[in-house]
């Protein structure tokens, strides 16, 4: 079942990448999809039926513009720090704690943190994330978690858990 899904997904991706596909493209696509499914289907998520839940899809669609907004803000923030003559940074590695449990949600959280204002995930250990922060504000795990993690956590929980 998982392998079948992997084949369909990989093949769809291949067709999209070779658009508009000819006979040769489709043939190669089938071979590649079979190969990928054989080698890598074990890393696919265990319960893909979750992706069909309309509520999860809805929150995911909400998440995209929300994330893009923070992503653009992050870029303006970094651009400001880089272009300022004094390079106003106050870097450090802080620890934050997340309440998310599934691996997928944590992956998305870590990636979102990396792409948003001044923060970069250095390591994940269970529910602890070590974050390199370009401009450390506040003190203590609780305050840092509130500043960095909370803005994504609620949406991600609705999407993945």
């Amino acid at each position: 079942m998982k392998q079948l899904l992997c084949i369909v997904f990989t093949f769809g991706l291949w067709v999209a990448l070779t658009w508009t596909p000819g006979v040769a493209d489709v043939f190669v696509g089938v071979v590649v999809a079979l190969l990928v499914a054989t080698l890598l289907s074990h890393i696919y998520p265990d319960n893909p039926h979750k992706a069909l839940d309309p509520r999860r899809v809805f929150w995911f669609l909400v998440y995209i513009p929300y994330f893009l907004f923070y992503c653009v803000r992050a870029n303006l923030d970094v651009a400001y720090r880089v272009l300022h003559p004094d390079v106003p940074i106050r870097p450090g590695i802080v620890k934050v704690r997340t309440k998310l449990e599934s691996e997928m949600a944590k992956t998305f959280l870590a990636n979102s943190i990396t792409l948003t204002p001044g923060t970069l995930t250095v390591d994940i250990d269970g529910s602890d994330l070590y974050i390199h922060w370009i401009n450390v504000v506040g003190e203590g795990v609780e305050e840092h978690s509130a500043l960095i993690v909370r803005r994504f956590e609620k949406l991600l929980r609705r999407i993945f858990e």
């Binding site: 992050a74 870029n75 970094v78 390079v87 940074i89 870097p91 970069l120 250095v122 390199h132 370009i134």
Partner: peptide
Amino acid sequence: RLPDVYNRVQAATKCVTL
């Protein structure tokens, strides 16, 4: 301009991704 690996990776990832 940024001083160490970690800060540089930040600038490189964010700005270059977007």
